[in-house]
């Protein structure tokens, strides 16, 4: 898949490289390069150069068609986030962040480099000592991605390493997806003798939690389309809900049959609000579409 390897068809570089081709694809990390600030990639294309053709460029290290990473000069990051705007361009382009040992930490692209650097400086000041900047003219997504790839490729070729901030799972520099709650388990394990009947555990669970969804699969990876839709609706509405995987044979052993009897409802998913069965996927969907869900599940 495209996310596993960086398949390069370089425009700027001289040799055609296929990065990480020596590694097996399972080990090849997914590289992330979209940085924090929301305005990234939603701004219309702005080119400082063409807009103010007579204005002398104040950023001497910046080239319009960005240079190689190696040839680009390091610009020291000012200590205060407020001063970043004067030193870095609010243009689109690629940027590389270095720590105080001049170790490359992260290569990112942005619609507004100054804004991105400001965000990084606020969140991880200890890693933001200096930055290299390459403004990209006519910065459509493809051009920005290409610029990012060429710097990544150059760095990996020279150092043999992926910048730590670009490695899979590193969320220091990029927006992290909201954390999902774990699914609830009803029992300590299949082979542990229950002191309380499963039915009572279900009863407590749905009464002690405002919204409980019994689904097939986990909330992060539902294994049935109906459960998937239920999770989608609840998350889309921002509902703080608990989920229980009825297919978990280790920690929810026997749950499916017991729950069917408890609720007198023969199918899954099942959604409970305030201890009462609301219904399955169809009913939840219908309530959602009629706007009846939000008032019911709000705190």
């Amino acid at each position: 898949m495209a996310t596993n390897t960086i398949n390069l068809s370089p425009i700027h570089s001289t040799s055609s490289l296929r990065l990480l081709s020596s590694r097996s694809s399972q080990n090849a990390p997914t590289l992330s390069f979209y940085s924090h600030p929301k305005p990234s990639l939603t701004f219309p294309s702005i080119s400082l150069k063409s807009k103010n053709p007579t204005k002398p460029r104040s950023f001497t290290t910046i080239t319009s068609a960005h240079k190689d990473l190696k040839e680009t000069e390091l610009i020291a990051v000012p200590p205060l986030p407020d001063e970043v705007n004067g030193k870095f361009p609010s243009d689109a382009g690629v940027y590389a962040v270095y720590d105080n040992k001049e170790e490359l930490q992260f290569i990112g692209i942005s619609r507004d480099i100054a804004a991105s650097v400001t965000v990084h400086l606020k969140s991880v000041p200890e890693l933001c000592s200096a930055v290299k900047v390459g403004v990209v003219d006519e910065p459509d997504r493809a051009a920005l991605t290409q610029a990012w790839k060429s710097w990544m490729e150059e760095h990996i070729k020279a150092s043999g390493k992926i910048p730590p901030g670009n490695e899979t799972g590193n969320v220091t520099w990029v927006r992290q997806p909201p954390k999902k709650k774990p699914d609830l388990r009803l029992t300590p394990g299949r082979h542990v003798q229950l002191t309380v009947p499963l039915e009572e555990l279900i009863d407590r669970l749905v009464k002690e939690n405002k919204v409980v969804a019994f689904i097939k699969g986990s909330r992060s990876a539902p294994m049935c389309g109906f459960s998937q839709r239920v999770v989608g609706i609840l998350e889309g509405e921002g509902v703080d809900y608990e989920s229980v995987d009825v297919l978990d044979e280790e920690y929810n052993y026997g749950l499916r049959e017991t729950l069917k009897k408890y609720s007198n409802w023969p199918t899954f998913p099942q959604i409970f609000v305030n201890g009462e069965l609301v219904g399955g996927c169809d009913i939840l969907t219908s309530m959602y579409e009629k706007g009846e869900l939000a008032p019911l599940v709000k705190k």
Partner: peptide
């Protein structure tokens, strides 16, 4: 209510649900 309507359908099909019918999408 929708819940009661679905229950009426499920009740009518109890035998089917006990013999391998997994899910119904009901309007």
């Amino acid at each position: 209510s929708l819940l009661k309507r679905h229950r009426l359908v499920y009740d009518a099909l109890a035998d089917e649900l006990h013999s391998g019918l997994h899910a119904l999408s009901i309007v």
